[in-house]
Write a protein that binds this DNA or RNA. Sequence first.
RNA 1: GUGCUCGUAGCUCAAUGGCAGAGCUCUCGGUUGUGGUCCGAGCGGUUGCCGGUUCGAAUCCGGUCGAGCACCCCA
Length: 442
Amino acid sequence: MFKPQKKKIIKKAKNKKKMKKMLFQSPKGMHDILPEEQSYWEKIRKVSREIADFYNFSRIDTPILETAEIFERSIGETTDIVEKQMFILKTKSGDRLALRPEGTAPIIRAYLQHGLSRTGHPLKLYYNGPMFRYEKPQAGRYRQFNQIGFEIIGSDDDPIFDAQIILVTYQLIKELKIKDLTIQINSIGCKNCRSTYQKKLQNYYNKLGLNKICKDCQRRLMINPLRLLDCKDKNCEEFKEQAPIILDNLCNSCNNHFKVTLEFIDELKLPYNLNPTLVRGLDYYNKTVFEIFTEGVEVAIASGGRYDYLTEMLGGRKIAAVGSGLGIERIVELMKDREIVVPPAKSKPKAFLIHIGEPAKKQSLGLIEEFRKGGIKIIESLGRDSLKSQLRIADKEKVFFALILGQKEVFEESIIIRDMRSGAQETVPIRKAVEEVKRRLK
RNA sequence: GUGCUCGUAGCUCAAUGGCAGAGCUCUCGGUUGUGGUCCGAGCGGUUGCCGGUUCGAAUCCGGUCGAGCACCCCA
């Protein structure tokens, strides 16, 4: 009777110890953005702000959680995103909310909810924020990832906006010094010609016989025939080559739309490839679809397309729109790999305040405020008391001047200004400290 | 979701069944209040976690968590 109890107690104690020691990890596929990589993120934010501003896109932020149905209706019930990749939660009152897996549908929801059509057409919006997909992580593929997106809503389906979206997206990447870009582009038609084409494609594969194509293709044939063109299986390749091509099956209006879009892009001399197998995974796309790649990287760094039916899918009247999205993590990885230099996220300090003794320490915070008023960034190491340690830090921070405030200086109401490069020092009245440093910085 | 590879100090890596180590980083010191170089010391680990085999496990086995690769899919 005693033994089991004893064992239990030991086990409990062990657990307690373990609990104390256990370190937590960030959730699978979700990452911290540490101070040392913030410079890349800041650079991307800055450039995207500037690009958006120039092309007159207004910033919009939508909640991270949305009614799950928004995505089910727009992205498509049979897509992987909706079928297995959404983080869904139920609130206490029973609402089904989803962590947004993409940015476009929420923006259209906001557009309809707030009647943003009143602000005139076309409405140009951009966003930057986290998206969530429950997937098996890999390099460049995370469960929480950040996207920048551009949307042009309204103004019918004028192909010039297809071209402008592509241009803006392309310029953003180019502005970040990422080279060797190519745009893959295709048109997947409208409701009418797409479904005609899908039937044609299904017929073609059915005639071939199911046993000739891979298992994935058999599944695709049933649920999403356009995806057949995406198959990378070697056996399927030859059938793909013979398969009907969507560009040959577009209706007159879609064909013309695509032709004009390409003319605009030709005019801009953007490097693009016609890719008739490019179809995109989301249901709301129609007509133009595109992806932007860089040499040596398998995955797209940006993608987008036209979505003229999305407003209707979300309960509004039909409003044509076109948009794009960029994967920030993928861009950051590229910038690191290619050793693209970016300015530091923090500004450089000009001076370092050193205190020796309690009276000096007491004056430190107040003195720093004087420098802030004077517009000079001054740093310190208030937790360190030895002069040597403080000078070491000042050196490491590469400041121009160290200001030394000791017992004697406090008594005399003065401060030492030390030029860190030459080592020359001068004692000046403390009232003139800011002014003196300012003068020397020139 | 399927198949495979990898997890040792904050970082880069040693130790391959027998005492867990090095370099870098970080902290402090090298005699009154003066940095970098140099020298010295210290901090940092129940080897991701749990279990099994064994006299003995970082090492072998199983599971699990995480990272990555190829699929699936995608930013």
